[in-house]
């Protein structure tokens, strides 16, 4: 039986249904991300798990116990907020020890636990500081330690990295993941940043319009998107309109080029998609489909060069590694692009 089960969860604000028939099971120690654009309902799901919102219908079971009717302070759930939410009147140590004090733990136990948590987040000497004396990254580490100190059964992270600058965000996400693995705590992470979700999670739930569009490992979600939305939202995607010539063998015509996906396709016109890394510049061995087009732009991004080319009315973006020996093609020049047809994704509505 799963450690955390969410069944048929719904939430409406007036006539606006922000979460619709949301189902999810999470194993103990698993790190699951809720990924989606603003307004997709991911934070509402998290807040219902935390107890800050009451579901319109549905069940939330943690460790075999339905918690829907429990108040937030009765759920033993740790939460880290986007805005840190450290108590400004308390020192770092007092912030971390707050949950333990509320629980009535003895002073000696509190002191030891606070020291352990400070060490865990790599700030062993900052216990006497006030929150305003810390950087954003340090404050969020303290918020994490505060949430973890009372040993909650579930950790909820509500876009904890959004307020930080890019460099700190990357280092802190690695730290959060390392700490989560070390403690083995069941974690739900809400983010709109696909890179964060893909890099940190055991599983990703892609949400759209209050529903879970796909639940899967980062590899599955990226490489085998279940819906058009997931394919578009997770990673960069090039779409190609194709006419199916033979549905049984997957033979299609893309512009003036015929190729076969070697799998059954629906008859008629379909939308195919290719990730930038599936497309190569020039004719490459092992790739069975050659497309001809014209370069529209070349963006130098350092180690990678992003090239856009127009092919039969569609614009395709793809990346090449920077090389001092081979300068990128100039905009306006004609190019041939190669790809493996069986890699192409078929985009479908749910």
């Amino acid at each position: 039986m799963s450690f955390l089960t969410i069944e048929h969860l719904e939430k409406s604000f007036g006539t606006n249904r922000v979460v619709q028939n949301f189902n999810l099971t999470i194993e103990k120690g698993e790190f699951v991300s809720l990924l989606g654009p603003s307004g997709c309902g991911k934070t509402t799901v998290l807040r219902m798990v935390a107890g800050f919102e009451t579901p319109s219908t549905g069940r939330i079971v943690i460790g075999g116990k339905d918690v829907v009717n429990l108040r937030p302070n009765q759920r033993n759930i740790g939460m880290v907020f986007q805005a840190y939410a450290l108590f400004p009147n308390l020192t770092v140590a007092d912030n971390i020890g707050f949950g333990l004090k509320v629980a009535g733990r003895p002073r000696a136990e509190r002191t030891a636990r606070v020291a352990e948590m400070l060490k865990l987040i790599g700030l062993p000497d900052l216990g006497d500081r006030f929150p305003f004396q810390l950087s954003g990254g340090q404050q969020q580490r303290v918020a994490l330690a505060r949430a973890l100190a009372p040993s909650p059964q579930v950790l909820l992270l509500d876009e904890p990295l959004s307020a930080l600058d890019a460099k700190v965000r990357v280092s802190l996400r690695n730290e959060i993941r390392a700490i989560q693995k070390k403690l083995g705590i069941t974690t739900i992470f809400v983010t709109h940043d696909q890179e964060e979700a893909l890099s940190m999670s055991d599983r990703v739930v892609v949400m759209h319009g209050g529903r879970a569009e796909q639940v899967g490992t980062p590899f599955e979600v990226y490489n085998r998107p279940a819906t058009k939305f997931v394919a578009n939202f997770v990673g960069m995607l090039n779409t190609l309109e194709a006419d199916v010539i033979d549905p049984a063998t997957g033979r299609v015509r893309i512009g003036g080029t015929e190729t076969s996906l070697r799998r059954a396709l629906p008859a008629g016109r379909v939308t195919l998609a290719a990730r930038p890394e599936m497309i190569a510049l020039g004719v490459q061995p092992g790739r069975d489909t050659i497309l001809e087009g014209k370069i529209t732009s070349v963006d130098f991004l350092g180690s990678v060069i992003r090239i856009r080319a127009r092919v039969d009315g569609s614009e395709l973006a793809f990346d090449t590694f920077n090389s001092t020996d081979a300068p990128p093609p100039a905009p306006g020049s004609d190019v041939r692009l190669s790809l493996l047809a069986s890699d192409l994704l078929l985009l479908q509505d749910p």
Binding site: A50, G51, F52, R71, P72, N73, Q74, R75, N76, I77, G78, M79, F81, A83, A85, L86, F87, N89, F98, G99, V102, A103, A143, R146, A147, P150, L156
Partner: peptide, 23 residues
């Protein structure tokens, strides 16, 4: 940030009196 601080305190087990008095 009253709502967030309140929610943070609630998630740490605090009731209304504790939130008002200590936060």
């Amino acid at each position: 940030d009253v709502p967030t601080l309140t929610e943070a305190a609630q998630s740490l087990g605090a009731g209304w009196v504790t939130i008002l008095w200590r936060i």
